[in-house]
Amino acid sequence: MPPEPGVDVFEAQRPRLLRLAYRMLGSSSEAEDVVQEAWLRWDRQAQAEIGEPAAWLTRVVSRLCLDMMKSARSRRESYPGIWLPEPLVEAEDDDLRADNLTLTLMLALERLSPLERAAFLLHDVFGQPLDEVAAVVERSPEAARQLARRARAHVRVDQLRYPVARDEGENIVRAFFEACRVGDAEALSRMLAEGVTLQSDGGGKVLAYPNLIRGSKRMLRLLLGHASKYGSGMRFERFVMIDGLPGFVSAMGGQVQTTALDTEGGKITAIYITRNPEKLARVVH
C-alpha cells in the first residue's frame, strides 16, 4: 500500500526539522522526540487546511523546542562540569552543512536567551521570513528583528570560518592523535595555537576535566602527562566530522569518547572532548 500523501509531505521535511530541533536543543535524542511529537500533531491535523506545510511544521517544532529549552537551561545550570552539545557525527553525504553551523557556534548559542536563539536560528540560519519568526516567538516582526539582531551581535565573533576539507581535517586529526599517544612534544608544540582551549564533558558519570583549560604551555603539559599515563592504552577508532569540525572517535580501557578540533591557519585553536556515555549512544552503535 502506498504511503498517505501527508506522510510523504512530512518525511520530505523531516531532515530539516531534525536539524532545526538539534540546533535549538543541542541534543539529537531530544530533537527526535520533538519531531516525533510534531508528526503526531501533523497526523491529527486537517492537512488540507494547511496552506504551507513547511511553515506550519517549522512553527510547531520551534514552539516545542522553546518549551523544552526552558527546562533544559535549568538542567544545564546544575550540570556537573562542562556541558557540550551531543556530538553530531556527520556521514559524508549528509547535508548538515546546509545550516552552516559548527560545534563552536553551537556553544556560542548557549549564551543566548531561548527567544534570541530561536530568532537567530530561524531567520539567519534557516532563512525564515520575519513574519514567520514573529509567529513562533509570539512577538511583533520588529521585536523578532531585534531578537535576531541581539543574537547576531553576541555570536558574531564565533561565526564559522572557512570550513576545513575532510581530507585536510583527517590529516590534522591523525597527526594530533598520534602525537598525543606517543607524547611527541615537538609535534604538539607545532600544532597548538598559543591561546588553544580544551573543554571536556563527562556529565559527572566518567572522568573529565571539570574546567576549561587555556594556553598552549598548559595544554602541552597536560597532553604529555596524559600520554605518559595512558598513551599505551589509547586506540584510534575512526575519523569523523563532528558538527562541521574534524574529529575522531577513540577508546581507552573500554571508555569511548569523541574529540573535535577547531583549527585556524593550520593551528588547533580549540579541543572539544565528549566522554558522557549518555551523549555517545549514536556514536558507539
Rank of each mutant, 00 (worst) to 15 (best):
R221T: 01
R218E: 15
E237T: 04
A187K: 13
S232D: 05
R238F: 01
P246G: 06
A151P: 09
G247R: 01
A193V: 01
V240F: 03
A134K: 05
F176E: 07
V137H: 04
E142P: 07
V155T: 04
A135H: 05
D131Q: 11
S232G: 10
P246C: 06
R166A: 15
V173I: 11
L192E: 01
R156S: 15
Q159A: 10
R150V: 12
V182M: 06
E237W: 00
R161M: 10
G247S: 05
G203M: 05
K229D: 06
Y162I: 03
R221M: 03
G233F: 06
Q128K: 06
L160K: 13
R190V: 00
S216K: 15
T197R: 15
Y162P: 12
G127K: 08
V133A: 10
E170V: 02
V206S: 03
E132V: 10
V137Y: 00
P210F: 03
A175R: 14
D124T: 07
F126R: 08
R145H: 09
V249Y: 02
V206G: 05
E178Q: 13
R161C: 03
F126V: 07
H226E: 12
Q159T: 12
V182E: 10
G203K: 01
A144P: 12
L192S: 04
M191P: 00
S250E: 12
K229I: 00
V136H: 08
E178A: 12
D124M: 09
A193T: 00
V182Q: 10
T197P: 13
D167L: 09
S140W: 02
R214N: 04
R235M: 02
A134D: 03
G233K: 10
S216I: 04
F176D: 05
A193K: 02
D131T: 06
R190C: 03
R139N: 00
Y162L: 14
E237M: 03
A179N: 08
C180E: 14
R238Q: 07
Q159E: 13
F236G: 09
E168N: 07
L160A: 14
E132F: 01
V196I: 10
R150Q: 13
M219L: 15
G225D: 04
I242H: 02
R152A: 14
A134M: 08
C180F: 07
S200Y: 12
E170W: 05
E168D: 15
H154C: 11
E168M: 08
A134Y: 04
N171C: 02
E138V: 14
A151W: 05
E170Y: 08
R218M: 13
Y209T: 12
E142Q: 11
G231Q: 02
E194C: 03
D243E: 07
D131P: 01
V157F: 09
R181M: 06
L245F: 11
D167Y: 01
L220R: 06
S140F: 08
C180M: 14
A208D: 01
R190E: 12
G204Y: 05
A165I: 02
V137K: 01
E178F: 03
T197N: 10
A187F: 02
R150N: 12
V173N: 09
I213P: 04
L188F: 04
I172H: 11
